[in-house]
């Protein structure tokens, strides 16, 4: 089932305090690509993947969008359903969503429009070998 809109967490709200893996505290709107990269480096067990948006469709669930990504070096195909206001962090660009207007309305978080070809930051478990 998709992530429900009513449960979109408040950590996307402008001003929310985020703790990096280094212990540093930053506001969500001030985060930069390097913050995620460094956090992944110092945290055990997690790694950052580059996830490229390859398609954006309407979901069968009303009010949701279906996002298709290719993830990591393996180019694995992963699809997720989210509300259009759900922000993703795009490399070198920052927060982006399918509906920047709704994101601004709900979270006051400035966003770019998420587009096919954007490379988002995602995490996965680090391989044990």
């Amino acid at each position: 089932p998709p992530i429900t809109s009513s449960h979109l967490p408040s950590h996307f709200m402008k001003g929310a305090i985020i703790q990096l893996a280094t212990g540093e505290l930053k506001r969500v709107e001030d985060l930069q690509t390097q913050d995620f990269v460094r956090s992944a480096e110092v945290s055990g067990g997690l790694k950052i993947d580059s996830s490229t948006v390859v398609d954006i469709q309407e979901s069968q669930w009303p009010g949701f969008v279906l996002l298709h990504f290719v993830v990591g070096e393996q180019q694995s195909k992963v699809s997720i359903e989210v509300p259009p206001e759900h922000p993703f962090f795009v490399y070198g660009q920052g927060w982006s969503s399918c509906s920047p207007g709704r994101t601004a309305q709900l979270f006051s978080l400035p966003c770019h429009r998420l587009q096919v070809g954007d490379v988002c930051i995602s995490i996965s478990l680090q391989s044990l070998n």
């Binding site: 996307f12 305090i17 703790q19 956090s39 993830v71 993703f88 988002c120 996965s124």
Partner: peptide, 25 residues
């Protein structure tokens, strides 16, 4: 009286999606 307000602190990894293939190759 001013009651102390707690400030929520969220971990960085809660902001990014966990994307992993359900069936590894």
């Amino acid at each position: 009286n001013v009651e102390p307000r707690s400030v929520a602190v969220f971990p960085w990894h809660s902001l990014v999606p966990f994307l992993a293939p359900s069936q590894p190759d």
